[in-house]
Amino acid sequence: MNNALAPRSTAKDFDLGKFLAGIARGIAGALLFALPMLMTMEMWELGFYMDRTRLLILMVLNIPLLIVLSDRVGFEQTTTWLEAMRDASIAYCLGIFASGLILVAIGVVTSDQAPHEIIGMIAVQSVPASIGAMLGRSQLGGQSQQGDPDSGDPLRDRETSYAGELFLMAIGELFLSLNVAPTEEMILLSYKMTPWHALLLIVASVALMHGFVYTLSFRGSHDLAEGTPSWHALVRFTIPGYVIAGMISAFCLWTFHRTDDVGATQALMMIVILSFPGAIGAAAARLIL
């Protein structure tokens, strides 16, 4: 299998210990990122009442997302798309496995439930869990083998294309959105807030997002090249990032039936509310990934 998929490494190079460590890290990542969702009541309910077309769209969209993510930050440094696809499918499988395991362990999935319910519950949870499994490598490990991450780490020393930056923002946004989008609080907030609150929240989201990446000196902060006016970064990165956050929020809310039969302004307010954590997630992704 290894010969066919990874032509540059032979079976002799295969390090079983390292491979198993990667799998363990993936499961750890899946748990770390998906536990809040695995323990959310709305996510269990979505598993059985969610429209199957929407569930299918979510699950199919997750595949290219994992492949591109694998290319960026996967279990190991991938050189070919075939390897990225292999790692993506491992991450997806780990996500399904970890979700199923936890749902059984916490007594949400029991043997007397219909297969329709069980499959649905595991399927909807496997999407965040698989992203978690993929991120597990970049967040939980890798550094130990690569020594000091600042000294010539091939993953860090590279140029990120514009689309790549936007993609990273989308991943961060998707992650935080998936955590909170299924909860009832998101729609309740949109009913409690007036349009004035929403307007203020838009401005605050954009300001926070920009501040996170450019002003506060976190590790991984971005700086502008000498002589570039500061509003350049706002127009080129932060504003598109916020619009992507809005689009992903809209997609999450639609997927989880939160926008069904809802008027345009109310739906827009929900998107604005969900984009607030999303914008922070997007900014954090640019710093971390």
């Binding site: 991450p149 600042d150 000294s151 860090r156 020393d157 590279r158 140029e159 990120t160 294309s161 514009y162 930056e165 590790r219 991984g220 902060s221 971005h222 700086d223 502008l224 090249a225 000498e226 002589g227 570039t228 350049h232 970064a233 080129r236 990165f237 640019r286």
Partner: peptide, 16 residues
Amino acid sequence: MTKNTGHANIETNEPH
């Protein structure tokens, strides 16, 4: 584009 060297990310001056 963004140049990513070590932990400093510098936005390039000639955007597309």
